[in-house]
Design a protein around this nucleic acid. Structure first.
Lengths: 343, 343
DNA sequence: TATTGTTTCGTGAACGTTTTCGTTTAATTT
DNA sequence: AAATTAAACGAAAACGTTCACGAAACAATA
């Protein structure tokens, strides 16, 4: 079964290749009836225009790259879903690549994408100076929309206002009477740990609540699932009741959910004994052991805006850089409650 | 900043285009030093070979398509993660497209992909005769690996043995003393509802347990999140205790988790009052309100095998069709227990 | 030395589109 | 009817690679 090309369609319909091309690209300089005839014959011959050839000739692929660490965290997979949907609305297909948060892999991926495979990239980049340099370089070739923001990064960004989000959570906890609030997160440099930690410190400071150093708990291994929450909880148990945190501000929903499981296994009752908050508002949070209080910007909006930004960049070559910050919303559920008087 | 092409590299290094091509494709018919020189100059000039041109010339894209309904169900997003990882191991990039389980959208996507964008496709297809016909047609152009199996589908498949999986779950429940077991699923035609329902009927029959018609509960709207589990549970409450199901075999983990929330809200205790099982063994199942008993084949393996199959098909043109069935495993957690004597 | 064989490289066709430019035909105006 | 304009199409270049073929250079053999 020989591949059928535009030439075959041209011959079969007695027109030139150019005309067939016109027929397929809904252009105005072709008579309606010849267009219909050509399209008809093309369908009969099962002709599908070759996209490599088209990409070569037009210099664009009508495809956007999506680059994220993985899809194991529902927050990311939800967002990718909405990015893909928005992309398709603009007739853009999508190329997906997972970096595992490894910088050399990210580099390989970006180079591969910048080869004409995609017209632009939406990425949750690794955090490192090297990464930033590289992103800036790629950004001179094809537009990049980053879903993080940091010093020196020169591309468009669309992010959630992490500082505000953290503040919302903390103020909620403080409203509930909590004063000893712990912060649980992976070690920086990871996705906005800095921002959330700073917001944590500042918010507590501004309310003249002193946070204790040992309330800040970092761990390298959160992302890999082997982290031992049990140990963490045990160390909590060893603290005198009057010094124990009464609430824990977890870095994200996944960590919060794991934490809750460990806490309940250790005999704590959530939220009676201890309040726990998450971050990202993943849909699973509602189905968890204790419906999770969380905070996040709409991932639907995030995806839409990212694609809109990219789409604009692709149309108007010299669009100026945009840095968009979405306002997060607090979702109060059952994992937080008034601080108990005993503590 | 003019785009730099292979021609520029050729001139800059005083060789022909052919030689530059050789340098970039690690071929043997080039002297090591000229290769190094060319590669060096290419790097200095920030040259990235154009993949459209390469695709056109070679007739392949070194890219595989992944087509699934969405990534909102962790089962799918986990699997896509593993597919992407395996693909990258073979130096294949991936193109992602979401169908929302809509057949016309799936059709558009497949056509777009069969235009040379990808060399092969891994898909969780919509269920309909039309869809099958179309898949078979596309499969004559580029190899398709389907993650479902049905009559008339002529492409490779790799699936979990649903019948066996259902049997494992049901036998587990029966071992625990359950006799009144309900089956809760979306309405067919959806991903292997038939298989699981049939397995349900057969297993119960073979053990001479009669299943009641009203224990089989289908609903259209499970996939959309608006399904009213509360109503379902209410109807359960209206049944006399002695006739109520003591266990519910849910179609998948998401449904099981939603169900558990609704049941507990209605005052049931899981698993004391009623046992619930899921399907897919999503990682969130461990973090749920009640750690979920579930059954599934390894999604890692599924992804790996799908890519391996595709990879073979791409190498050996006329590889014969393979239909691979993975053995599922039962994961017993806390959502199932011995049937309580009161019931 | 002459012959054969092996590397290494250059040349040009091929891949399947789009697009520019010019030509023909048809429609409109004078 | 002639002149002008507009619509519809054809021809060929261009996009940036790969690949088959053959030529040249060099090494190995007789």
């Amino acid at each position: 079964m020989k591949k059928v090309s535009i030439e075959d369609i041209a011959q079969a319909s007695g027109v030139s290749r150019g005309t067939v091309s016109r027929a397929f690209n809904q252009r105005s300089d072709i008579k309606a009836e010849t267009r219909d005839k050509v399209l008809d014959i093309a369908r009969k011959l099962n002709y599908i225009p070759n996209s490599s050839a088209r990409g070569l000739a037009k210099g664009c692929s009508e495809c956007v790259g999506i680059v994220v660490p993985d899809l194991l965290n529902p927050f990311l997979s939800e967002m990718v879903t909405y990015i893909e949907r928005s992309a398709r609305k603009h007739n853009l297909s999508t190329s997906l690549a997972l970096t595992d948060d490894e910088i050399t892999l990210q580099e390989r991926i970006l180079i591969s994408m910048a080869s004409g495979k995609v017209d632009g990239i939406i990425i949750t980049p690794c955090e490192s100076d090297e990464s930033i340099k590289f992103l800036n370089w790629i950004n001179t070739r094809i537009p990049i929309i980053a879903l993080k923001q940091f010093e020196g990064l020169e591309c468009d960004t669309v992010i959630c206002n992490d500082t505000l989000a953290s503040k919302l959570v903390l103020e909620h906890l403080i409203d509930l009477g909590h004063r000893r609030i712990a912060f649980l997160s992976p070690e920086a440099p990871v996705f906005s740990v800095e921002q959330r930690l700073n917001a944590y410190k500042r918010t507590l400071n501004s309310l003249e609540i002193e946070y204790e150093k040992h309330f800040i708990c970092h761990s390298k291994t959160f992302d890999k699932e082997e982290f031992d929450f049990t140990k963490l909880v045990k160390s909590l148990l060893q603290m005198p009741v009057g010094e124990r945190p009464t609430a824990i501000f977890a870095y994200d929903d996944i960590i919060a959910l794991n934490l809750i499981v460990a806490l309940e296994n250790a005999g704590f009752s959530i939220p009676r004994d201890i309040s726990v908050t998450g971050f990202d508002n993943i849909s699973m949070g509602k189905l968890s052991r204790v419906p999770l209080t969380s905070v996040a910007a709409s991932s639907t909006r995030l995806g839409e805006i990212a694609i809109d930004l990219l789409h604009n960049k692709l149309k108007n070559e010299n669009e100026k850089v945009a840095n968009i910050t979405l306002i997060p919303k607090l979702f109060i559920r059952n994992s937080t409650a008034q601080v108990s008087l005993i503590c």
